[in-house]
Structure formats: structure tokens, C-alpha cells
């Protein structure tokens, strides 16, 4: 058993950085803990659930996908190599790791996305078994668990009353990481701490079924009233993956960009002629729930939600998709009686 003292996460980060990894870890930033690129001297805070998901290190907010030089009427393509540094993500939550598996399906669906696959291949996810959860966590309602291993290349687990971590490799990438980190790992024994307890808040199968029959429902209208129409939920979500393509340039050079985009914003479906097929937040909330709990299931056989709860924690109106799902589940049960 490979053991690391609880306060030695920066040492682990340092030895991995020395071995050529870009290290991403939860670090304190003002009032938040955020997943960020680790630099020597930074403390690592594996306590709170990070405000941002790990998604942005595999699917950046803004990415140059093509580059051109311009000269009068002519243009010449320039190389736009994929940026895929060898990366180790420390203390990624099981919900985030599972989300990357969902995104693998999206980015290898009709089109194999080389940029995603290159970064995925170069990234080693070291999951942290959640020792604590908050009232917005609902992984257990969407097929996950605080100690789930889906998507993880290695697992960190608190042990001996949070005084140690047990580090376990789950595959080749994990083994390579453990080998690189051998200098800071000790052989020994430790008793793993129990994972957090996350109550099941709703039956996701019931939500999927209900969504198939309730495209028109007063629920959407009520939800739409409180929604302010920002992209906070989608950009915090580890599974949301919509993007926009933009060209930007000067007279001598231009780039084609892939920028995050979200169905929560009015402009997402705005037609150039002025018509908007999703005219209000009610239609946009419906799309959000339908996509996560119905369309994604139909297309890929799994949910597009891993229950991290970030959308609810960060919503300026404190709307929660888990509460919506619970209400749907309860309404369905009541109707069945």
C-alpha cells in the first residue's frame, strides 16, 4: 500500500512537476478553492469541493483551432498545434472524473475530436474519495458515489482519521504517475476513512421517463421565472460541452476559436433573422434538463449529469437541478398513486 502523509500533497505535486507533469490541484484563491495549475509554494486544499470543475483543463474555455496569415485577398493557413501538455490532476472529485467519461462519448461521437483526445491521453486523473459532501451534492442520485472510480487513473483516499492518504493506481497512466512519485510515497498500512454519505435525492430513471412525456409542462414556466439567463451553471458543469466557433483577426492574421457556449444564454439559439426558437428562460431550462436527463441518455446511454452540485452552489438565484428532479420524481410518484 502506498501511503502519503495528509500534509504532503504539495510534495507529491512538486515531485510530479519535477517529473515533467503540469500539475493541476485544488488551491485556495480568495474565498474559493479552485482547480488551478499548481506552482511551487502553493498550498493544496483538498477539503472543499472546488468551485470550478476539471473540465477546463481538457476542454479549454477558449482554444485556437486554426490560424491564418492574411495578405490582401490571399490567406495562408498556419500551424495551430494542439496544446496537450502531460498533466496530472490531483484530488479530482469522482463526479468530475466520471464527467470526463461522458465527454469522451461526446467528443468521439460523429467526429473524433483530436484536441480533446490528445489532452485526455496526456492527462492522469488522480481522484480523491470524498470525505465530506454538502447539501448540494447528489452523485448517488445519478449513478455515482463519493468513492466511485469511473474515469480515474489513480485514487487518493483519506486514511487513519484524515492523517494520511492511500494512493492506488488503477491503470497504466496511474502506475506511471505512482512510479514518478515514488520518492514521496511510503510503503505501509493504513485504515481508509469512510467516504462521505450522500443521500439519494431522486430517481433519475423517473426523471428520464417524465422528460419523454412532458415537453409542455407548467414546471418549465415556473422555473423560467427565477432563472436570470446566465451561463454560470453550464460553465461550472463538468459535463456541459457546447461551444461556439468564432473567427477573429486583424489585417495581417486571423484565428479560428472554439469558445464555450451555453443553452442558458438567449443568443445561443438566436437566428440571424431575429427569430429565437427558444424564446425565454423557460424553454432554455427545459433544454438544460432534457439534454442532461433525456437526450443524452437516448444518444449515449447515460446521464449528462454527475451530481457535483456546482450549478446550484453557484447559481445567482440558487436554483438547483437536483430539486427540480426531485419535484419531477415526486410529482410522478403522486400521479402513479
Amino acid at each position: 500500500m502506498k501511503i502519503l502523509d495528509a500534509d504532503k500533497l504539495p510534495d507529491l505535486a512538486a515531485v510530479l512537476a519535477a517529473a515533467g507533469y503540469r500539475v493541476v490541484a485544488p488551491v485556495r484563491d480568495g474565498a474559493q478553492v479552485r482547480m488551478a495549475e499548481w506552482k511551487p509554494g502553493l498550498a493544496i486544499d483538498a477539503g472543499p469541493i472546488p468551485a470550478n470543475s476539471v473540465k477546463e483543463f481538457l476542454f479549454p474555455r477558449c482554444e485556437v483551432i486554426a490560424r491564418y496569415s492574411l495578405d490582401g485577398d490571399s490567406f495562408a493557413p498556419q500551424p495551430a498545434p494542439v496544446d496537450a501538455p502531460k498533466t496530472a490532476v490531483l484530488a479530482v472529485r469522482p463526479c468530475d472524473a466520471a464527467a470526463m467519461v461522458a465527454l469522451d462519448k461526446v467528443f468521439n461521437w460523429e467526429y473524433r475530436d483530436d484536441a480533446w483526445n490528445a489532452r485526455r491521453e496526456a492527462t492522469t486523473l488522480v481522484a480523491l474519495v470524498c470525505a465530506a459532501a454538502d447539501d448540494e451534492c447528489f452523485c448517488t442520485s445519478v449513478g455515482g458515489a463519493p468513492d466511485a472510480r469511473l474515469g480515474a487513473d489513480a485514487v487518493l483516499r483519506c486514511a487513519d482519521g484524515a492523517s494520511k492518504f492511500i494512493l492506488e493506481a488503477l491503470g497504466e497512466k496511474g502506475q506511471a504517475l505512482l512510479a514518478a512519485a515514488a520518492g514521496v510515497l511510503a510503503d505501509g498500512d493504513a485504515r481508509p476513512d469512510p467516504p462521505a454519505s450522500v443521500p439519494v435525492r431522486f430517481d433519475s430513471k423517473a426523471v428520464t421517463d417524465w422528460c419523454g412525456e412532458n415537453f409542455e409542462s407548467p414546471l418549465w414556466r415556473d422555473l423560467g421565472l427565477a432563472c436570470l439567463g446566465c451561463g454560470s451553471c453550464a460553465y461550472a458543469c463538468p459535463v456541459c460541452h457546447c461551444f461556439d466557433i468564432q473567427d477573429e483577426g486583424t489585417r495581417s492574421e486571423a484565428v479560428r476559436l472554439r469558445n464555450w457556449d451555453t443553452c442558458g444564454l438567449a443568443l445561443f439559439t438566436q437566428h440571424s433573422g431575429g427569430h429565437n426558437p427558444r424564446p425565454d428562460q423557460a424553454a432554455r431550462w427545459r433544454q438544460r434538463v432534457m439534454h442532461k436527463f433525456r437526450y443524452f441518455v437516448e444518444r449515449f446511454g447515460g446521464l449528462a449529469c454527475t451530481g457535483c452540485g456546482r450549478c446550484a452552489r453557484l447559481c445567482p438565484a440558487r436554483l438547483a437541478i437536483s430539486q427540480v428532479c426531485r419535484e419531477i420524481d415526486e410529482a410522478r410518484k403522486a400521479a402513479a398513486k
Binding site: 484563491d29 479552485r34 474555455r61 436570470l228 439567463g229 446566465c230 451561463g231 454560470s232 453550464a234 460553465y235 469558445n259 464555450w260 451555453t262 444564454l265 453557484l314 445567482p316
Partner: peptide, 12 residues
């Protein structure tokens, strides 16, 4: 550099 352009500032 942290801004994701979610426009929550504007929406709120």
C-alpha cells in the same frame, strides 16, 4: 483570467 464569460454579472 478566471472570467468564463458566463455573464452572470450582467444577468444579476
Amino acid at each position: 483570467a478566471k472570467c468564463t464569460r458566463c455573464y452572470a454579472c450582467r444577468a444579476a
